[in-house]
Design a binder for these strands. Structure first.
Ligand code: FES
Ligand code: FES
Lengths: 157, 157
DNA sequence: ATGATCTCCGATCAATATGGTCGTACTAAA
DNA sequence: TTTAGTACGACCATATTGATCGGAGATCAT
């Protein structure tokens, strides 16, 4: 449950790879092309290409056309959060399909719904979680994330 | 993205309803039957029935057969966590499909995978989040959940 | 200039997961 | 024994996702 799609998975791998090439190595300005990533991680080439296109369109990476072309991070690895990557591929975070209701399109349960508020809170918490971790964190040291919930232990506030 | 299934949604609604009937009212021992819930929240009857069967099989609720039958919480609302409910319906929490690898069934990327560790950490954080909120929390006061991450402090949404 | 190499983009197909339905058997209270 | 309810398993329809294909543009080397 709560699985993220393969595309999102690929996006994370690709970005991580691009970042690691651009970062720790002696070739700072080197661009990375699709095939290189696809072969390294055994990802279907065309599918990865599509994923990268989307990432590029959403301003996470820059594309360079022609031979010797490829992709480049659009900004520092520390300024790209996991949430941005995932939302870029899979659309806005919506734990339930009526999280972001558009138009007059209410779900039938809306009126008597007893779980909307709590679910939105959970969703928001998850969002914070994802938005507090960056590509940079994935590269370097293991990020430390702690969660505190007053319920289920001593009630504090 | 990260959507939970409708079945899980229904499960939450149903449990919340059962709990609220059993709790705040003057009818402590009253059982709740499937049709009552289905009509109240406009859920397809048969589908809800199936969901409740699963919950019952997993020991979250008790079923009582025959006329005047119905369902009853198996334990206190404070002892049922959101994680338990969701996992009961959708199986174990697995943010990526290779979270819990079984047999020799590795994913192809396993060897060179650069995102496994961070993703598992995120998954664990989400699990804590869900496991720290109980049915009781959803019923009563709004639970307060806070997240603290030392990295990426500047990132705000 | 011209061809080779690469990204870009839209359309399309296949596999899988999900939502929803049906029919029957079983149980316990009235 | 009748009847209102759950239990259970098989089943179909649809939505989502994973993956593929083909061509159009762009850029660089020659
Ligand atoms: S399920 Fe849509 S508002 Fe609660
Ligand atoms: S994707 Fe399977 S181990 Fe990373």
């Amino acid at each position: 449950m709560l699985k993220i799609s393969k595309k999102a998975d690929y996006a994370l791998m690709a970005l991580q790879h691009i970042a690691s090439v651009q970062f720790g190595d002696i070739t700072p300005g080197r661009v990375v092309n699709t095939k290189e990533i696809a072969e390294e991680y055994h990802i279907p080439l065309e599918l990865l290409a599509k994923v990268l296109q989307v990432l590029s369109k959403n301003g996470l990476i820059e594309s360079h056309n022609g031979p010797k072309g490829g992709y480049l991070l659009a900004r520092s690895a520390r300024q790209i959060t996991i949430a941005q990557i995932l939302e870029s591929i899979e659309g806005p975070l919506a734990i339930t399909d009526c999280s972001h209701e558009k138009d007059g399109d209410y779900c039938m349960q809306r009126e008597h719904c007893n779980i909307r508020t709590p679910l939105l809170k959970i969703q928001d918490s998850i969002y914070q979680l994802l938005n507090n971790m960056t590509l940079g964190d994935m590269l370097g040291g293991t990020p430390l994330i702690t969660i505190q919930s007053p319920s289920a232990q001593g009630v504090e506030r």
